[in-house]
Structures are given as C-alpha cells and as structure tokens.
Amino acid sequence: MKIILNIWRQKNSSSPGKMVRYELGNVNEHMSFLEMLDVLNEELTRKGEEPVTFEHDCREGICGSCGFMINGIPHGPERGTTVCQLHMRHFHDGEELWLEPFRAKAFPVLKDLMVDRSAFDRIIAAGGYISINTGSAPEANSIPVKKQCADRAMDAAACIGCGACVAACPNASASLFVSAKIAHLGLLPQGEPERDRRAMRMVLKMTEEGFGYCTNTGECEAICPKGVKIENIAMMHRDFTRAVALFREESKAGGAG
C-alpha cells in the first residue's frame, strides 16, 4: 500500500523545524508503524539524505521509548497502543499522515521526532521511590495488602512513562504521569510512610519543570497506551492538599535511627 507522510524535520534543539513530505509506495500492511519508518529511512539513506530520527527500544509496548504524534494524536488513532505496536493495516491505501514530536516546554525537541523527556526522570528522582533498601525477598504474607489496593496500584504502575499524556493535554500537564506514580506507591503499605512527602515533592517538581496544570478534559486518559486513569489525578490532588495542610516538621530531638 501507499502512504504519504508529512514528517517534522528539525536538525537540533536550536534550529527551527518544518514539515517535509515523503511518499512511500511499498508499505506492507503487516508492518508496524516503526518498521514503515525503517523502510523510509533505508530509502533516505540510500539517497544520501538524513534519516528521520525517532526513539524506540523494545518495540513491544513496554519500555515507553517510542511515541510521537500521528495526525494530532499521540501514538496514533488506535486506542490502548503505543506507536511501536501500531500496525499499518489500520491505515488505508494512499492515506496521508502528519507526524510530529510531542510538544511541551518541558519536552524540548532534540531532533526530528525525538524529544528530551528527562524532566520525567527528575520528577521521579524528587520523590517517586521508596526509601527502603532491597534485600532478599521477604516472606510473601508478612505485609498484607488489600486486593483492591493491589489492583489499583498495579493499574497505575502500568504507566511506561512515554509522555503521551503531556503531548495530548491542552495544557501540557504531566498530571497523569506524576499521579500514576503517586498512586502506585501510595496505595501500597511499603509506599505509605512517604506518601505525604512524595506528593509534595513530586507536585512541586512537576510545577518547576514547566508542565501545565490539569483541567480535567480527560484527553490523557483517552489516549494513554496503558489505560492509566484520571482517578489517579484526583488522588494526587487529595494527597497533595492533605500533605500540605497536615505537614509537620520532623522532630530534631528524637527518632534517631
């Protein structure tokens, strides 16, 4: 099948970019979207042109490396799928597609379709962890976890950190990503002790990194390849508000250990 591609080409973060049109005549419908781009890149290389840069790693929808906009939707038109898992059979012969990078101040474009998502790493480093050293596996029943909490934590933990939520959000908010981590850890007994501090630090960091705020449009939830719910955002707002209201200084005198 034939596919017409308009791809955002940008040399580096300091130069301006523009849409460039390519026609690809030999697309197989069983190819994944990224394989289709591989074909294009081989062609470009053969012609001595610069191949299109896009991020990818696992190509099985679990690492969160891939992702760009296809016709204005992160990861393309299919719901619940990353672009590496999107197949060309979902498009029709002769279809014209627009590919551009995720856009947000906090996600500067590095090259073509590749953006710098290290702001996410810095938010995680600010509080998205549990301060307990891992050791040998503990006895499974020593810490009881409510089934419903385990389920919700698991659903939130499905986030692969691809950044599609930021890309889809009209305000470039990272709320879905940040709240997924807050919910994932906060719902489990191991994460509970740091729940207040985590909410405060991660929300503050997300604000500092220049992400927008949540206007509850539900756009992120609709396009999330892992189906992470905005219920988590409500939990983040709750946790943050509670944490700030009830914050106490740590006692200087006691609690050494």
Binding site: N71, G72, E100, A172, G210, G212, Y213, E219
Partner: peptide, 21 residues
C-alpha cells in the same frame, strides 16, 4: 493558570486532534 498554559507549550502543534475533550 492561563498564563502557565501558554508557557507550557510554546510551539503549537501543526495538527492537533482531540479524542475526549
């Protein structure tokens, strides 16, 4: 918040679709 929104995405999309809004 509106100012923050303008700040948060300085370069607009060439094409943007909405799914749920």
């Amino acid at each position: 918040l509106w100012r923050l929104k303008l700040d948060a995405r300085p370069t607009p999309y060439v094409k943007k679709a909405t799914v749920a809004t």
